[in-house]
Amino acid sequence: MESYAALLRGIMPSNPNMRNDKLRAVFEGLGFENVASVLASGNIVFRTADDPADLEDRIQQALATELGIPGGTIIRSHRELRDLIDRDPFEGRTHQPSTYLTVTFFKDTMREADTTAFDTDPLTRVIGYDPAARAFLTVIDNSVGKTPDFMARLEKTYGKNITTRTWLTIQRVVNKMT
């Protein structure tokens, strides 16, 4: 039996169908064990012996059917996330209110290694792409009171089969999986 994290795209806790209790119920209904939520932004951890290749589609179909959630589902195993943390791609930087360390997970692999979409944005520093985790790593400067148009630029460049989490959230997810 393996531990997994489902990183759900587009979850808004103010929507009654997107609350943690309803999300967990869908996962439990699929027969997964040790289902738990991490924060209120679409992070569900669970254990299963099912084939990981089918998990994303099964979960997304159940979320759409039962709760009307059309967004994307991206799955990562405990090992994949733990290995990412152990690699320390942010080289000891600390996530804080003025500096967000972000991880954008791709459903498959990054379409292209081109990160030039962020070259003109002085508030976004590209750390790189981690192929093992299928994740794009960036540091967002929030110290100037202006939020960069980061999410829109990500979607325009790479499409919607992605979801972004802070480094702190990834650490919390991994801690909940153990």
Rank of each mutant, 00 (worst) to 15 (best):
E80L: 10
S77Y: 00
A36E: 10
A62W: 01
S37M: 07
Q96F: 03
M18V: 02
R47A: 13
V26N: 02
Y100Q: 12
P52C: 10
T104E: 06
I44V: 08
T120D: 14
A49L: 05
P13R: 14
D108K: 13
L30I: 04
M18H: 09
T104M: 01
R134Y: 07
P16A: 09
P52Y: 08
R125C: 01
A117W: 12
A53R: 05
T65S: 11
G42H: 05
E56M: 12
T65Q: 15
D50K: 11
R82I: 07
P52T: 08
P16D: 11
D54N: 15
D57M: 11
P89H: 12
A53L: 07
A25F: 06
D86G: 09
D83W: 04
S41T: 12
L39N: 02
N20E: 13
G29V: 00
S98V: 09
A53W: 00
E56H: 10
D54A: 14
R134N: 13
E80V: 02
A40V: 09
G128Y: 04
I69Y: 00
F46V: 03
R24N: 06
S98A: 15
D130H: 00
I75H: 01
A133K: 06
I69T: 12
R87D: 15
P131N: 04
T73C: 14
A25H: 04
N17G: 04
N20M: 15
E112W: 10
R87Y: 09
S14E: 09
S14V: 05
E56R: 13
G128W: 00
T65K: 13
A49H: 10
D86N: 12
A36K: 15
T102R: 13
T99F: 06
L101M: 13
R24W: 01
I69P: 01
E28I: 12
T109W: 09
G31M: 04
S37R: 02
P70Y: 09
D114N: 06
T104G: 06
L67H: 00
R58H: 07
T104Q: 10
V35I: 11
F27L: 08
G71E: 03
D21Q: 09
G68W: 02
G72H: 08
E33H: 11
D54F: 14
D86A: 15
A62C: 08
A132Q: 14
S14N: 10
D114Q: 10
R47L: 06
D21W: 10
L39R: 03
H95K: 04
N17C: 03
S77H: 01
D86T: 04
F27E: 07
T99Q: 12
T124E: 07
Q61W: 07
T120S: 15
V126A: 00
